[in-house]
């Protein structure tokens, strides 16, 4: 009887825990969106204090940082999972990535400032910001990639190799498609960080927006939405409705992240379904 009661108690506790998460999310969304959504007018984007530039910069920097970090991060992760022999050197690589993954982002920001802003003499630039963001995200990408690939059963590899496939064919046609959901999760994770990151970008991409709309010059300074939110809240310019801009920006940030996640998840689901055949198990 006692085991029975403990079981019920545990079930209820776990249920409450899960419910709390949903409740917190709902409270959070209603508050932020409720305060911010009314401010999201055309004026908010295109007006004299409009955030059109910041919105563009956010995605531009996200895009550039992914371009810089994905090939290296995925490549290193794949190498670690599939090709690397197990020895002291690869243990050292793994230890290094793990240590790098836990470095506070503001330290990366300082590093980026020393290297890109000062040593290379670029000043505050979108390129410097993206490169530093890429550095921040690399260790996480390597780890997530390695772990997703390791989760693919060994028997798939054996089956493919025994049919006369090369390692590269096996990787492309069996391992990567199977690991895709894990990889997408990893990319969503780093993309979310890139969209929300402030500490790094204040030090490297600066707090100015180009006067040219949709300026793709990577050597221009580029304030992102998250940095903008920090700027208007911490240092409100007199004569502006800083609180409203901040509320609107916060809501816009949330919407951006949600939209971005959906944009990544839906195609990956579709790809998986195509891989698996009609009736998924």
């Amino acid at each position: 009887m006692k085991a029975h009661q403990a079981d019920r108690f545990a079930t209820i506790m776990l249920w409450i825990g899960s419910l709390a998460i949903v409740a917190i999310l709902i409270a959070f969304l209603t508050l932020i969106l409720g305060r911010g959504l009314p401010h999201l007018t055309s004026e908010f984007f295109n007006g004299p204090d409009g955030v059109r530039g910041q919105l563009f910069n956010s995605f531009y920097i996200l895009f550039l940082s992914l371009v810089l970090s994905l090939p290296v991060g995925l490549g290193a992760g794949i190498y670690m999972a599939e090709y690397a022999p197990k020895n002291k050197f690869t243990d050292l690589i793994r230890l290094s990535t793990e240590s790098l993954a836990s470095v506070p982002s503001i330290v990366f920001g300082l590093f980026g400032m020393i290297v890109f802003v000062n040593m290379f003499g670029l000043g505050f630039t979108i390129l410097g910001g993206s490169a530093t963001l890429a550095l921040l995200n690399l260790p996480i990408l390597v780890r997530v990639t390695e772990e997703s690939l390791r989760a693919v059963p060994r028997s798939y590899r054996e089956a493919s190799l025994a049919l006369g496939a090369t390692m590269w064919q096996t990787l492309r046609k069996v391992i990567l498609p199977t690991a895709l959901p894990g990889l997408i999760t990893g990319i969503t994770l780093v993309a979310g960080r890139a969209l929300g990151e402030t500490a790094i970008l204040i030090f490297t991409a600066g707090m100015n927006v180009s006067r040219i709309p949709f300026d793709v010059n990577p050597l221009a300074a580029g304030e992102t939405l998250a940095v903008h939110l920090f700027a208007v809240k911490s240092n409100p310019l007199p004569g502006t409705n800083a609180d409203q801009i901040a509320d609107g920006t916060a809501a816009l940030l949330i919407i951006m992240v949600i939209v971005f996640n959906i944009c990544l998840t839906l195609p990956s689901r579709w790809l998986q379904r195509r891989q698996l055949g009609r009736n998924k198990v």
């Binding site: 028997s155 493919s160 049919l163 496939a165 698996l276 055949g277």
Partner: peptide, 27 residues
């Protein structure tokens, strides 16, 4: 290709029946 192997535990790929059989000829 000449010496094929069947394993102890059935190990089809997580693909459709057709794609499993077509895998070898495709590669």
């Amino acid at each position: 290709k000449k010496v094929g192997m069947v394993f102890q535990n059935p190990n089809p790929f997580p693909k459709s029946v057709f794609e499993n059989v077509a895998y070898g000829p495709r590669i």
